[in-house]
Design a protein around this nucleic acid. Structure first.
Length: 370
RNA sequence: GGGUAGGUUGAGCAGGUGGUGAGCUCCGCUGACUGUAGAUCAGCCGUCUUUCGACUGUGGGGGUUCGAUUCCCUCCCUGCCCA
């Protein structure tokens, strides 16, 4: 179990039990799910996005309408990403300089500037419980010099984010970068953890590197952080198996689009592994998606029904599938928390690994046992 | 009954005026998806073969020709117009 830990994160909109998973609601909605659905799934905290919401509908508008919580009807905690991921995912639509990033809007091509100061201003206007520092995420397989340059820029931007932040009721998390290079990662932890952030995020992972590289990098970060008490957030992870790799290395928070995205594409996560409900074999399957699940989808509907809805491209397919996958994921996190408490963690990991594959061991058996 | 336009691989089409028709879109099958430009994308989708490739296929039958999807005859089917 290594560095596994349990905790509770306090925010102005409620507490969050950790380790915890945050469904992603980029555009002020976790796609296809209502706040009521999220509550029913056990969701405690969700994500919003600086870049998307500033472009549409505009952060000032959201502020005028009472802030992001009120705007979207979710009164629980919200963490907002800074737009750093879009520096990566919209690489062909942006230009980076030391001061910030200029995007050509993915909506209409219009120029849109994002700097550390603007990213904080937008997040303060949105009123999220946790704001993320503006960082530069790069492909870990880029030449070391490029990874180093992005990391150093991230460090400078981190200081500017803290310097410009004004809301006392909003936490700010810093982001560690440095690709998969152990030395860069250590330097990045030293730089970020040395600043008065409220939490420390690990960025730049799950972007194409191997499972082994991710685990090894998390080991390096965990070692470098030592007994730092602040919440630790592994950004963009992950799959059922990946949660174990993170939890064992001291991660408290995860977010990922995977549960909702794959749900919309017909992949359902269950206690029996993953199912692709578009497969012909489910057309006559009267079983619930997951007999072990008590979500609305599994209580009331069959695999055959969902298989039909997907084929017919009925909108309900996306909601029922997303509701189930989010429920499954949050149930899994809850099971992980209780397994850590009662000592059954190893057997839980074994079961989930068998269903969803390896969690990516490092080449050397680091952090085995306790 | 007369006239006219057609009949192409599950569906809908493209093409083809005597010399290699397996091209498209659906449908279907499978896979992928990790801080959401994603209810998306990719592969396959006549038969055989892992691949290369080979073979078959333009409504049926017949004819002309070295060679027919193309030209001729005939039959069948469909739409429309006339009676």
């Amino acid at each position: 179990m290594g560095r596994t830990r349990l905790g509770r994160l306090q925010t102005p909109h409620g507490a969050v039990d950790t380790p915890q998973f945050m469904p992603v609601g980029t555009q002020a909605t976790v796609k296809s799910l209502t706040p009521g659905d999220l509550r029913a799934s056990g969701t405690q905290i969700i994500l919003g996005n600086t870049y998307h919401l500033s472009l549409r509908p505009g952060h000032q508008r959201i502020a005028r309408l009472g802030g992001l919580h009120r705007f979207m009807g979710w009164d629980g905690p919200i963490l907002t990403d800074s737009g750093g991921f879009q520096v990566f995912s919209l690489a062909h639509l942006r230009r980076v300089d030391d001061d910030g990033v200029t995007f050509a809007s993915h909506l209409d091509g219009s120029p849109h500037r994002l700097t550390p100061e603007l990213a904080m201003e937008i997040q303060e206007a949105l009123g999220s419980d946790v704001a993320m520092s503006f960082d530069q995420l790069v492909d870990a397989t880029l030449p070391p010099l490029a990874v180093k340059e992005a990391m150093e820029r991230t460090h400078l931007w981190a200081e500017r984010c803290l310097a410009s932040h004004t809301r006392p009721d909003q936490a700010v998390f810093g982001i560690v970068q440095g690709g998969v290079d152990p030395d860069l990662r250590r330097r990045s932890v030293a730089a970020i953890a040395g600043l008065p952030f409220d939490g420390i995020a690990v960025g730049g992972l799950s972007v194409g590197e191997s499972k082994a590289q991710m685990a090894a990098t998390l080991d390096v970060v965990a070692d470098a952080l030592g007994d730092d008490p602040r919440p630790r957030y592994l950004m963009g992870v992950g799959s059922p198996a990946d949660f174990f790799a993170g939890v064992e290395r001291g991660i408290d928070l995860f977010d990922c689009v995977l549960p909702t995205r794959v749900a919309r594409n017909g992949q359902l996560w269950t206690s029996q592994g993953k199912l692709n409900l578009r497969n012909a074999r489910f057309m006559d399957d009267a079983e619930p998606v997951d007999p072990a699940c008590s979500c609305e989808t599994c209580r009331n509907h069959s695999r055959a029904y969902l298989a039909h809805l997907f084929r017919a491209e009925e909108l309900l397919a996306y909601r029922l599938a997303s509701l189930h996958n989010v429920t499954y994921t949050l149930d899994l996190m809850r099971r992980i928390r209780s397994a850590v408490s009662d000592g059954s963690y190893a057997s839980l990991r074994e079961v989930v690994q068998a269903q969803y594959g390896s969690t990516g061991r490092t080449d050397k058996p680091a952090l085995s046992g306790r």
